[in-house]
Amino acid sequence: NQASVVANQLIPINTALTLVMMRSEVVTPVGIPAEDIPRLVSMQVSRAVPLGTTLMPDMVKGYA
């Protein structure tokens, strides 16, 4: 089972991601792979992401 990136806190719209905002977790459906966490740092979210939400490619500007 592949771990995905999950929000560790509420991430407001247009916030630049930092390591403390993200954790890896095995979830369904699968989201952005956990190994991409270093690449996500400083990228902005395109919408508010609630705590515990799996990050999907369309939620991060410039990821897809």
Score class of each variant (00 low, 15 high):
A64T: 13
N1E: 15
M43P: 01
I11F: 02
N8Q: 11
N1W: 11
V41Y: 04
V60E: 02
S46C: 05
R23H: 08
L19E: 09
Q2R: 03
A48D: 14
R39C: 11
M22K: 00
T15I: 12
S24K: 06
Q44E: 08
P38V: 13
P50E: 12
V27L: 06
E35P: 07
L55F: 12
I37L: 12
K61Q: 11
L10I: 14
Q9T: 11
Q44C: 15
K61A: 12
P50L: 13
S46G: 13
K61T: 14
V60H: 01
D58E: 09
A7G: 03
T28F: 07
T53A: 13
Q2K: 05
L17G: 02
V60P: 00
I32E: 01
M22T: 02
M43S: 11
V6S: 02
V5I: 12
S4I: 02
P57E: 13
D36Q: 12
V27N: 03
D36V: 10
A48Q: 12
V5N: 01
K61R: 10
G31N: 01
A7M: 04
V27I: 09
P38T: 14
R23W: 03
V26P: 06
E35H: 12
P12A: 11
M56R: 10
S24C: 05
A48C: 09
M21W: 02
I13R: 09
L51C: 04
L17Q: 00
A64H: 15
T54H: 03
E25M: 06
T18A: 06
G52C: 09
P33M: 12
N8M: 09
M21T: 03
V45G: 01
A3V: 06
M22D: 02
I37C: 04
L51Q: 11
L40C: 04
P33N: 13
S46R: 10
K61G: 07
V27F: 03
P12L: 09
V49L: 10
D58C: 15
P33H: 13
R47H: 15
S42H: 07
V5W: 01
V27K: 10
L19W: 09
T53F: 10
L51N: 14
V49F: 03
A16E: 10
M59N: 07
V49S: 02
I11L: 14
M59I: 06
A3M: 10
L17P: 02
Q2V: 10
G62S: 09
D36H: 14
M21Y: 06
A34D: 11
D58G: 09
V60K: 01
R39L: 12
A34V: 12
M59Y: 08
A3L: 14
V45N: 03
N1H: 11
V49T: 08
A3Y: 15
V41H: 05
S46K: 14
P12G: 07
K61N: 11
D36M: 12
S4Y: 03
N8H: 15
G62N: 09
R47Y: 10
N1L: 15
P12I: 06
T28C: 15
R39A: 08
N1A: 15
R23F: 05
V20Q: 07
L10C: 06
K61E: 09
S46F: 08
Q2M: 07
I37G: 05
L10W: 09
L55H: 00
L17H: 00
A7Y: 01
T53V: 14
T18W: 03
L40P: 00
T15V: 10
S24M: 12
G52Y: 04
Q2C: 09
A3K: 06
P29M: 05
L17N: 01
Q44K: 07
T18F: 03
G52W: 05
T18E: 13
A7P: 01
G31P: 01
E25S: 07
Q44N: 07
S46T: 13
R47N: 15
V49Q: 02
T15A: 07
L40S: 00
P57A: 10
M43I: 05
P38I: 08
M59K: 02
A64K: 15
V60A: 01
S46E: 15
V49K: 01
G52P: 02
M56I: 12
T54Q: 03
T15H: 06
M22S: 01
I13H: 13
A3Q: 13
M22W: 02
L40Q: 00
P57W: 11
T15C: 04
T53N: 12
L19D: 11
N14I: 03
A48K: 07
V30M: 14
Q9R: 08
S42E: 08
R39S: 10
A64N: 12
V60N: 02
L55K: 00
N14M: 06
M43L: 12
V5F: 00
V27E: 02
P50K: 11
I37P: 00
E25L: 04
Q44S: 11
S42D: 06
Q9H: 09
P38M: 13
V5S: 04
P57D: 09
S42K: 08
Q44W: 06
G52H: 12
M56Q: 09
L19I: 13
V27C: 06
I11T: 02
G52E: 04
V30N: 11
A64M: 13
T18I: 05
V60R: 00
Q9W: 07
V5M: 01
R47Q: 14
V5E: 01
L55I: 15
V45F: 00
V20S: 14
N8G: 13
D36E: 13
P29W: 04
Y63H: 05
T28D: 15
N8F: 04
T54V: 10
Q9C: 05
L40V: 05
A16M: 09
L19F: 14
